[in-house]
Amino acid sequence: MVISRRATLSARVVVLIYLGLLLLLPLGVVFERTFAHGLAAAWGWITTPAAISAFWLSVIIAAIAVPLNTIFGVGCALVLVRSRARGRKVLDALIDLPFAVSPVIVGLALLLVYGQTGWFGTWFAHQGIRIIYAPTGMVLATIFVSLPFVVREVAPVLMEIGDEQEQAAATLGASGWQTFWRVTLPSIRWGVAYGVVLTTARALGEIGAVLVVSSNVAGSTLTLPLLVYQRDSQIGAGEISGAYAAATELAVMSLIVLLAMTVLGPRRNETK
């Protein structure tokens, strides 16, 4: 296809305006507002006890959800690509459920199952374990919404490398575990790494599902996105500034993740 210079140029302009209006301008405004009252004020907003607690809760939830989803994701990808089990197609469709279903529904579903009057919730309540309106429920919600990333990154790489290397390892005497650690995992490591980064990004940024199962109490069940949301919805200029500051903090964390994605992205289909 031959594209004229003018067409290329106008396409570029359209794309830039689109990205500018939807992405850069709003983000820029948030940054601008954050530092409107000076660096010290912004720093003050993100170092309040509520903000520090929200930061750590976000990090802890990600620190639990990401490793679990990584282990599950790699295992699941192996089942999908390598096994000839019958339920494979069903599993394949189920994996995408968190992508298809709105996060709010995820939260609501967890509420129904693990809530005080829910199926398992009643039993847990008798044991004195609180899941909904507590960090445990927020971890569950986060795991649910960030579940597909590792599977979806690793499965194509597994497909690409094929199973001959694994068969060769078996003929050379390696057990299943030895083959996994010495042959399979090194071959898919970039895919896994990219999946981990995507999972982290989603875990840090998730709000919908977490909002439903959080009690929204500052200092105990607020994550960073929830803090932004809460400060933003409260009346008063001060709180709004706080929302901007927390949003910027979150954006900076996302930028770090984005940087990791840019570095890992091109390598993720490398099987060498």
Binding site: I161, Q165, A169, T171, G173, A174, T271
Partner: peptide, 20 residues
């Protein structure tokens, strides 16, 4: 017996080299 236990050497058409 599993392949590991058979005392065989196997060579594949597409080498199956451990790329890493």
């Amino acid at each position: 017996a599993r392949p590991q236990e058979r005392g065989i050497g196997f060579v594949f058409q597409h080498y199956a080299a451990f790329a890493h």
